[in-house]
Design a protein around this nucleic acid. Sequence first.
DNA 1: CAAAATACGTTATAATGTAACATATTTGAA
DNA 2: TTCAAATATGTTACATTATAACGTATTTTG
Lengths: 163, 163
Amino acid sequence: MAGTSFAEKTETRLDNAERLCAAHGSRLTDLRRQVLGLVLEAARPVGAYDLLDGLRADKKGAAPPTVYRALDFLLEEGLIHKIERLSAFVGCTHALDGSHTEAGHPHAAQFLICTGCGQVTELDDHGILHALIDATRHIGFTVRHSTVEAEGLCAACRDVATA
Amino acid sequence: MAGTSFAEKTETRLDNAERLCAAHGSRLTDLRRQVLGLVLEAARPVGAYDLLDGLRADKKGAAPPTVYRALDFLLEEGLIHKIERLSAFVGCTHALDGSHTEAGHPHAAQFLICTGCGQVTELDDHGILHALIDATRHIGFTVRHSTVEAEGLCAACRDVATA
DNA sequence: CAAAATACGTTATAATGTAACATATTTGAA
DNA sequence: TTCAAATATGTTACATTATAACGTATTTTG
Ligand SMILES: [Zn+2]
Ligand SMILES: [Zn+2]
Ligand SMILES: [Zn+2]
Ligand SMILES: [Zn+2]
């Protein structure tokens, strides 16, 4: 019994995730599906220990490695991202909502963190990535992975602030 | 006795830092100077607890808040940066080596982390910053602070790898 | 000097993340 | 099908990073 069922929209995204995993020969097990579901249902980035609390509603006595292992898997599959500044995790909108055929592997992304409402927006902006690659190439640095996180105010929160 | 004296180059940078602080009416105390010195002498990013060990050579029994408070001050003054992916700190080359008149306040920077040798290079690339601002502006997001960190191989380590 | 502000000391604890090993489940080949 | 290997999960214990709260010392300012 994987128990806890999620909102319909979440279940759809979980089904997408399951297909992506199957497509590379990995398995979105009940546990991993449940952790991913908890990430997706949160309106904001969730910390590992919040997820652990969520898990414990279903599986009493679950311990940190359980959730960290699931998170590691989901990160490797490109289904979630870690927001470093927050030590917290968000679903990858690119992989789960988009119909990108190349989804389901880690990709460079940028995150906008609103300090007003806590919401995080994922960008996939080529301009930023290229600017980074240009700047690094001519000093001979080869980028393997990049983290781009901006803190500030989203449009809604800015309007409230200036009202 | 703030004790531990540093290499001459470091002392020069510490003197620069002291002038920058004085210029905005803050004080680079002995303790803060010592912590900054420890950061600058490390060839690589240093963790807070490594700094604590360094401090303890001079001041036995120093506790975490001592070093974290010094780090908070140095961050606010723009004398050091935190590398989020490493939970570690580096001196701001822009503020301490450059002769920038506007140094001494936090600024947007980018960090290149070499996974081969562990060295971190600070960039201050306008192209990256503008690309980020462009991408965010047309969705109405106002950037207040940005974190850009790239992992990869520096020129030296890449040459070794392909040899 | 005395009051206020700033910096530092000290104790305790919170929050995040992993190592190591035991058990269970799934997979794949004999 | 049956068993061995690979994969996934359970469990205990601990490592690492960071902060809260409160008391003392030092510096600044009137
Ligand atoms: Zn993504
Ligand atoms: Zn907002
Ligand atoms: Zn800098
Ligand atoms: Zn290198």
